[in-house]
Amino acid sequence: MFKLVNNLTYLWNKFKDRGNAEFWNSLEEELILNNVSVNTADFILSEVKEYCFKNSINSLNEIKNLIKGKIKEILECGNNWDIHINEKKPFIILVVGVNGVGKTSSIAKLAMMLQKEGKSILIAAADTYRAAAIEQIQFFGEKLNIEVIHHQRNSDPGAVVYDSIDKAFAKNADIVIIDTAGRMQTSANLINELKKIKRIVNKKNSRDPDEIFLVIDSNTGQNAKSQTEVFKEALDITGIILTKADSTSKGGIVLTIKHDLNIPVRFITYGERIGDISYFDPEKFVDLLVE
């Protein structure tokens, strides 16, 4: 996404004399190259374009601000998307996503962040499928001094969740974070398995998981929308953790996801170190995007 910053001025200088059409086309191209969907790009630009035309706006700065405003509108800047831990313990966070997006690392990062806020945390190692997934989360658990509830490999993930919540009651823990196995949104059986986990949480804790986060890799293209659609439909996800923001791809698809499906990004992770996570700041995102 951040590439747009430099390019806007460049494009403006290149095309301003050659008529506006090319300038707008190249803007659209830039958005699409940053994984914003064609529809969302059109939506943003067509309104800005019309406004510029009607009010004969012809300065780069004003156009910039208009585009910024449009994107802010989509991201609903000003809304507070932080986690609000309620009184009733334990607060349960379910983390889901397709394979290889960085669920386990994100959970470690999230756990550390919440730990810093003074919360006591348990992690449920409910990825019982992938080889060494349990060991990976245990490694982080040891590092952060957080207990990881786990069973044997290939055991029922639901049972791990069940035990974890029991344990949370026993230890009076504030938060339980559930790590799940990566699964493609196309696999109905595995999506059903997540629904079952959600039901178990509801049964044990008398309410659904308080937060259900879908983890999305910044490098993912338009398929991220399909992922969000399916996971939203199945689980009512409450937000997105955008990972690998330190890569050259900045996850412009989240604009489309917010616009089309109204699911906000809540956290962003940006590096290999365990501290490389923060609340997603749409304001900052937009400022970086269009400077």
């Binding site: 994984n35 397709v98 293209g221 890569s247 791809s249 698809i253």
Partner: peptide, 12 residues
């Protein structure tokens, strides 16, 4: 390469 990669895959 992840088949779900976006536009940036080419640069990678």
């Amino acid at each position: 390469v992840d088949s779900m990669s976006g536009q940036e895959a080419v640069n990678v």
